[in-house]
């Protein structure tokens, strides 16, 4: 999105990251390098820019901070800035724990997909849509579009979830 208010062209970037409670929109001048996104999120997240890494949502590999940000390429995509390159994720369900490494830009939905899959707990497809992820020891389902990196603060790079069944009507959970 370009904004010509006050004579300046800007690009709106959707960002998540370390220290951010939810996805936010930031604006950077047209022609900026990707490092500008990192700098902006580092300020919001309260961490030093040195060593911070930039990802695109659900991409495992970081992107080059020297590239120039182009509106057509970033529109609608959510970026993620974190100091951790990988997060050790564990999921608990019925007394078992499975684990796997994910990039911090991974959506909760993607971790959930893995947890219910045959590589995870092999949940019955009829039941799988009722499953949610909560932070370990809690009962509040996490938003599936959230990036897991928002729940982790460097240098602590481990994150445990519980696989739970969502709330159904009549005030009861299955």
């Amino acid at each position: 999105m370009q904004n010509t208010e006050q004579g300046r062209d800007e690009i709106e970037i959707l960002v998540e990251g370390e220290g951010l409670a939810e996805v936010e929109a930031i604006r950077i001048p047209v022609g900026s390098a990707a490092s500008e996104i990192v700098a902006a999120v580092a300020v919001k997240g309260g961490f030093p820019v040195e060593g911070a890494i930039l990802f695109i949502e659900d991409c495992d590999e970081p992107i080059d901070l020297a590239i120039v940000v182009v509106d057509e390429e970033v529109s609608g995509k959510v970026h993620h800035v974190h100091r951790a390159r990988k997060i050790e994720v564990g999921v608990f369900y019925q007394g078992r724990r499975i684990e796997r490494r994910f990039a911090p830009s991974t959506r909760v939905q993607r971790v959930l997909d893995w947890a219910v899959s045959r590589d995870g707990f092999n949940i019955d497809p009829a039941v799988a849509p009722e499953m949610e992820l909560a932070l370990h020891g809690q009962t509040k389902p996490l938003p599936k579009s959230a990036h897991i990196g928002r729940y982790v603060r460097h240098p602590h790079c481990e994150l445990d979830f519980d696989l739970i069944r969502g709330v159904v009507p009549n005030g009861a959970a299955l």
Binding site: D113, R118, P125, A128, P129, P141, K144
Partner: peptide, 14 residues
């Protein structure tokens, strides 16, 4: 949105 896209999970398994 979470409810309406929850079929994504089952579809992925199938």
């Amino acid at each position: 949105y979470g409810l309406l896209t929850s079929n994504t999970t089952a579809h992925g398994i199938r």
